[in-house]
Computed example of a mutant assay.
Amino acid sequence: MAQRGEEAVISPTGWVAKQAKVYEESGGTKGTEVMDAPCLLLDYRGRRTGQWRRTVLIYGRDGDDYLIVASNGGAAEHPLWYRNLVDEPDVRLRVGTEERFTARATTLSAADKARVWPGLVELFAPYAEYQRKTDRDIPVVRLSRTEG
């Protein structure tokens, strides 16, 4: 999914790295789900290094936009990818076999999150438990296409 000659470094988390590799090497025909929930590949820039990084995330939809959840399994801290998106919101996405595009990431307002949260929990039920077990408000991020 490299653009402009810049390869992304895959997540060091074992299962994420394996799934990202399968997803990319299969052309988006394998590795596209976790527990029956659809997944995308997200390339984002490291806020300190400027290096492109890649992770696999479950996604939902809101109109033409994609929604991702910064749950970090309900941990006390936001996931690293989310902290990077806050500083560097321009990202690259791969969704399935055909969709490769750039997007802009924005954290949803409380009202927008309240509107989409039930659908995200329906898509991936563990999100409800993750929110219950942490004191932080789990962010939901909108990914809006910026170019083809």
Rank of each mutant, 00 (worst) to 15 (best):
R92W: 12
P126I: 13
F101R: 05
L120T: 04
L120V: 08
R94D: 04
T97M: 06
L85E: 00
F124C: 04
V121D: 11
L123K: 13
G119H: 14
V91W: 00
L85P: 00
L85S: 02
G119K: 13
E122W: 13
G96P: 05
R115T: 15
L123M: 15
S109D: 04
S109N: 06
P118M: 11
R92K: 13
E98C: 03
L93D: 00
D90P: 01
D112E: 15
L85T: 00
V86Y: 03
A111D: 15
V95A: 14
L108V: 07
E99H: 06
F124V: 03
T102L: 01
V86F: 06
E88G: 02
A114S: 09
L108A: 09
T106K: 04
E98F: 04
R92F: 10
D87P: 03
P118C: 07
T102A: 08
A105L: 03
K113L: 11
F124Y: 15
T102F: 01
A111P: 02
V91T: 10
K113F: 11
V91Q: 00
R100P: 01
D87V: 12
T107C: 03
A110D: 15
G96V: 04
V86N: 03
T97W: 01
S109I: 04
R115Q: 12
A110V: 14
P89T: 08
A125W: 10
R94E: 11
E99W: 07
D112A: 14
T107E: 11
T97C: 05
L120F: 11
V95R: 15
L93W: 01
W117Q: 09
R94M: 14
S109Y: 05
A110E: 13
L108Q: 08
E122Y: 10
R92I: 09
R100H: 12
F124S: 06
F101K: 04
V86D: 01
G119N: 15
A110P: 06
K113C: 09
K113I: 05
D87W: 09
T107W: 02
A103E: 00
E99G: 12
R100S: 06
R100T: 13
T97Y: 01
T107N: 06
L93E: 00
E122C: 10
A125V: 11
S109Q: 05
T107H: 05
P89W: 02
L123D: 11
S109T: 15
W117I: 14
L108S: 06
A114Q: 08
A103V: 00
W117P: 08
V121A: 09
T107I: 09
R104A: 11
P126Y: 10
A111F: 03
V121N: 09
E98Y: 07
W117F: 13
G119V: 14
T102H: 02
G96K: 02
